[in-house]
Design a protein around this nucleic acid. Structure first.
Length: 419
RNA sequence: GCGAUUAUGGUGAAGUGGUUAACACACCAGAUUGUGGCUCUGGCAUGCGUGGGUUCGAUCCCCACUAAUCGCCCCA
């Protein structure tokens, strides 16, 4: 038997229902914020991710699905959503659109070659939004509010917004050096992972769980001390806008993100739910004011997030939230007539009038069809045989009260409509 | 990339170094039933992840591989 590739999942049945329902919900919400849907390729030139996401990041150095196609092109399955959207923004010259800023959203698969565990897959679905062309802190707050409001709509409670600022690029570089100078002389006292982190991404050292209580962590330089006044004010503004939207958040000075392109605002939304796995970041994002330039576009500020739909599904499960409320079958039509086509056409017409209708496709006898009715539990059911077709009268039975009423065979829709 | 645990039918699972691998649910056939829901009867893994090895003999012991689950790193 051929099985699915490691780290992938099949979503079907109830889970599949939730998945598509969430996507519709997301689309509705984004429309209200006036974001436009964008669909970009699932694979891009490898170079895009190397330059966009960052040459030294874990994602690019050891997690991409790279391949060479039959035309000898170096391609990569996208490991995240932003780089492709930015590429499209530049390629389609959206920076010249009359309406600025450009507000986009997308939903699609991302691929990373990692060891699967709870909340981590090799193919996962990301919902993301990006705003390009405005550096206003209002945009930062709006982006965060989209995620928060989605969670509100679906009733998720155990989530916390963690917020931080990395400052502008200049202060970030200065701060990086300060960290290296601080840790380097005594690096031997820290764990092996920290030694690697100091080389690759010094900010991450602060995030270490093993050495969290080490003296060097407490005496480490703070981001805020390296901020320019502008950066400080900017961060304050973001907080004011969030307050205005009544969004709760926790400022976490140790919050850094793994992708190279971030500057200023960064945030994560984490699940703090009993029994949730250790991969608890459901949504993460921030500002990237240099990314468009890095990818050869005109200097354009940007802000966005990515959200893991599968993790969202896990959170819903952990909080036992039943997303799908009304998916009960309206009507089952048992077809025991010798003129199956006539009954079949009645089934279709009731469906097209807006009701959820099921029938039998296996030419089962009445007993078998009753079993289906029992399993599917429709609100109503009707048995149509030759007698009913001849008389034009059917008995419609309320499956809850077991009450039966005789109506005309073409009055089914009317009957259901007034209930 | 590293670590831990696991791998028996459609599902949940019990089990043993040696004739027919428990039990439950589901499913199928039939009986009964005021069109189904209850009850009863019967059926349902020639095989215990894959490949090697140990043994007279392995689903049960050993090794490798694969996969799953969870954790580290990292991230959605």
């Amino acid at each position: 038997m051929i099985q699915k590739p490691k780290g992938t999942i099949d979503l079907y049945g109830k889970e599949g229902k939730k998945f598509i329902y969430l996507q519709n919900l997301i689309a509705d919400l984004c429309e209200k914020y006036n974001y436009e849907y964008i669909k970009v390729p699932m694979f891009e030139a490898s170079e895009l991710f190397h330059r966009g996401v960052g040459e030294t990041t874990d994602i690019v150095t050891k997690e991409t699905y790279d391949f060479v196609d039959r035309g000898n092109r170096n391609l990569t399955l996208r490991p995240e959503g932003t780089a492709g959207v930015i590429r499209s923004f530049i390629e389609n010259k959206m920076y010249a659109n009359p309406n600025q800023p450009v507000k986009l959203y997308y939903i699609g698969s991302s691929f990373r070659y990692e060891r699967p565990q709870s909340g981590r897959l090799r193919e996962h679905t990301q919902f993301g939004v990006e705003v390009l062309g405005s550096d206003d802190p209002m945009v930062d707050a709006e982006i965060i509010s989209i995620a928060v409001n989605l969670f509100k709509i679906i009733g998720l409670k155990g989530l916390v917004v963690k917020l931080n600022s990395l400052g502008d690029t200049e202060s970030r570089i200065k701060y990086k050096d300060a960290l290296i100078n601080h840790f380097k002389p005594r690096i031997d006292e820290l764990c092996d992972d920290c030694k690697l982190r100091l080389e690759r991404n010094p900010l991450r050292v602060l995030d270490c769980k093993v050495d969290a209580s080490h003296e060097l962590m407490k005496t480490a330089p703070k981001t805020i001390d390296y901020f320019t006044d502008d950066s400080k004010n900017r961060f304050e503004k973001v907080k004011e806008y969030l307050d205005a939207l009544e969004i709760n958040y926790v400022v976490d000075p140790n919050l850094v993100r793994g992708l190279d392109y971030y500057s200023h605002t960064v945030f994560e939304i984490q699940a703090e739910i009993e029994g949730f796995g250790s991969q608890n970041t459901i949504c993460g994002g921030g500002r990237y004011n240099n990314l468009v330039e890095t990818l050869d576009g005109p200097a354009t500020p940007g802000m966005g997030f990515g959200m893991g739909i599968e993790r969202l599904l896990l959170a819903l499960e952990a909080e036992e939230i039943d997303l799908i409320k009304d998916d009960r079958l309206d009507l089952f039509i048992a077809n025991i007539s010798s003129e199956k086509e006539e009954v079949f056409s009645i089934v279709q017409s009731v469906r097209l009038s807006g009701f959820k209708v099921e029938t039998d496709y296996l030419n089962r006898n009445l007993k078998g069809q009753f079993k289906s009715i029992e399993r599917l539990n429709p609100k109503y059911f009707i048995i149509i045989g030759d007698d009913e077709l001849k008389s034009g009268q059917v008995k419609i039975k309320d499956n809850d009260t077991k009450e039966e009423e005789t109506i005309g065979i073409y009055d089914i829709v009317d009957y259901l409509s007034v209930r």
